[in-house]
Structure formats: structure tokens, C-alpha cells
């Protein structure tokens, strides 16, 4: 894992809303933007605008934490754990 990739990963995780999206996707993979927003309402969490969630998903995707697949024409999002494992191998593991 390159230093740039480590930066992207930690930047992506340095936001409570993005960590919440990670938690949602860990509970249930393959959710559309609409489902992610509806799920937040169900949990009684602060309402997230679709525009905001869309931008957060883009940051997570760039960091490799979210993978986008398609069901028909709808974009679905799922969690990818390899960047976390790679970060542990490349740097965190040396400290822990």
C-alpha cells in the first residue's frame, strides 16, 4: 500500500458520517443510495441528504472501501475490507 493510498484511506475514515455509511454497509451489502438514506432514517440517525451521501460514497470508493456493482441500472454499494487489511500490513501492524 502506497503512502497516497494510506492517506486516502485515513481521510475517508476521518468523518463520522462516512464511518456510519461503512457500518450500514457492514450490516447489509449491496445497497443503493436511496436505501442507505432510508436506513439512516430507520435508525433514528440524523437525516443525510442524498447529495451528501453521494459525495461521501465517492470518497469511500476512491479509498477502495466501497465497491460499486449494478443490479439492472441501479448502482449498489458494498464494503471492501482489503484497504484496512493492507493498512494494517503496511503500517498499523508495526505499531500494534
Amino acid at each position: 500500500m502506497t503512502p497516497d493510498e494510506l492517506d486516502a484511506l485515513f481521510k475517508a475514515l476521518a468523518d463520522p458520517t462516512r464511518r456510519r455509511i461503512v457500518d450500514r454497509l457492514a450490516e447489509r451489502p449491496d445497497q443503493s443510495l436511496f436505501e442507505l438514506c432510508a436506513g439512516a432514517v430507520a435508525k433514528g440517525q440524523p437525516v443525510m441528504s442524498r447529495q451528501a451521501v453521494s459525495q461521501h460514497l465517492e470518497v469511500l470508493e476512491k479509498a477502495g472501501l466501497v465497491q460499486v456493482t449494478r443490479a439492472g441500472r441501479t448502482k449498489l454499494h458494498r464494503l471492501e475490507l482489503w484497504p484496512l487489511r493492507a493498512a494494517q500490513k503496511a503500517w498499523l501492524g508495526r505499531l500494534l
Binding site: F34, E35, A38, G39, V41, A42, G44, A71, G72, T74
Partner: peptide, 23 residues
Amino acid sequence: FTVEPMDAGAVMMAVFDDSCGNL
């Protein structure tokens, strides 16, 4: 169906394809 019945706070909801370009 594109979304199976799920909890959305005050309601349970599901989503299907109308085969005419809409969910």
C-alpha cells in the same frame, strides 16, 4: 423487486420496477 421489505422508520417499505422505466 429491487428492495425487499425493510424498516424505514415510521413505515415498512419495499421497491419494485414498474417495467416502464420507474422504480
